[in-house]
Design a protein around this nucleic acid. Sequence first.
DNA 1: GGCAATATCCCCCTTTCGGGGGATTGAGGA
DNA 2: TCCTCAATCCCCCGAAAGGGGGATATTGCC
Lengths: 217, 217
Amino acid sequence: MRGTTSAKIRVTIVEDDAGVCEGLSFLIDGSPGLRCVSTFGDAESFLAAHHSQRADVVLMDIDLPGMSGIDATRDLRRRAKPPLVMMLTVYGDDGQIFESLRAGACGYLLKTTPPAQLVDAITTVYHGGSPMSETIARRVVASFQQPSPKARALADLTLREREVLDLLSRGFRYREIADRLEIGLETVRTHIRHIYDKLEVRSRTEATAKYLGGEVS
Amino acid sequence: MRGTTSAKIRVTIVEDDAGVCEGLSFLIDGSPGLRCVSTFGDAESFLAAHHSQRADVVLMDIDLPGMSGIDATRDLRRRAKPPLVMMLTVYGDDGQIFESLRAGACGYLLKTTPPAQLVDAITTVYHGGSPMSETIARRVVASFQQPSPKARALADLTLREREVLDLLSRGFRYREIADRLEIGLETVRTHIRHIYDKLEVRSRTEATAKYLGGEVS
DNA sequence: GGCAATATCCCCCTTTCGGGGGATTGAGGA
DNA sequence: TCCTCAATCCCCCGAAAGGGGGATATTGCC
């Protein structure tokens, strides 16, 4: 995918703990197929220097002095040929996990990961995988399983009201909804008033926000 | 987590290919810590028998005669103490992956997975992980990266416009937005017209739908 | 039979939206 | 320097939305 097959995978470490940094660097350089090309103690100097020190994979800590590893990842993705970023952090809370992935991280490992697995993970990332610590993977998967916001709003509504709400939230005018459902304009208005009553909203937009799960984030 | 630590993990296989089924069963029974308690050739008979043949982990094929493995997983999750489900299939297209995860699958392996890894994966699932084949994991992670609906909508907008859009999508009236931002009503209207232009919408609701990611699902 | 819920339709009215035009200021880039 | 863009404000106007009232038919349940 990148470079020649025989070349070593170039790794950069962004980690503020000098000890950890050194340990990782040592581990990587001691692994066949990997080479640590640079280490940085903060996101700013990493971003500034990255042009000249191109890496294939970046091991990124989240908690850094100044700019966070997540923000750095986001910044990195806006560039021409962004390296693959793997988060390596002590925290595994949902917020940081999902924010990291949204920012563009390809993997997410906890610092408790054994060295051997860490090395495997770097290779996996490079070859198109997305290694995650066990608990992380489960949370990511679980995030798909949350009942969709739709289900909540739908609870109290009658079948017809749900149909109306769906069209309503897609921006259709009353007239258009009436035509689609082949009912009268006044009927649509009645349904909508009932919907508003049940959802405790006063406008189409509030209803839409509830329907689509607007109260998130 | 389940049973005693010394007990073997009870595995059930739902797979219509008798040969594959037998091979998996043999593999599992040959692994210390695992035991194949039952095998089914279709989802219906599995669902019917599952009460009496409780398993810890179910290896579920997707393509089954009749009901699909995904539907069976969905059905399973409605029960009292659903077993952990790991998809084991030849297909790795996004649709099936995400539908499986939404249905409640905890893991997703391709049938090309080497036996040793498969056994590991079963154990991982049992211990709270979510093993996925490399390419699957990357797709799952990538699904977070498709610039979130917000980011997309936000892309072209100026700072002020984003603020206005946020309030707009939460159902605030122009007057309320103006008061909140301490600007004039006309200014709000101007911003909104710019927002509509950029998002290519003609109403608050359409803008909200785009902002909140209404076109999903 | 009566009652509740659903779905349908009609009238009144005011408020809010959205589209069109234009203007000014200040900051920052060509 | 000039020009662009973001942000601010103003006017006119018609269409859409929302709130209030009430009505009818059908269904299913007690």
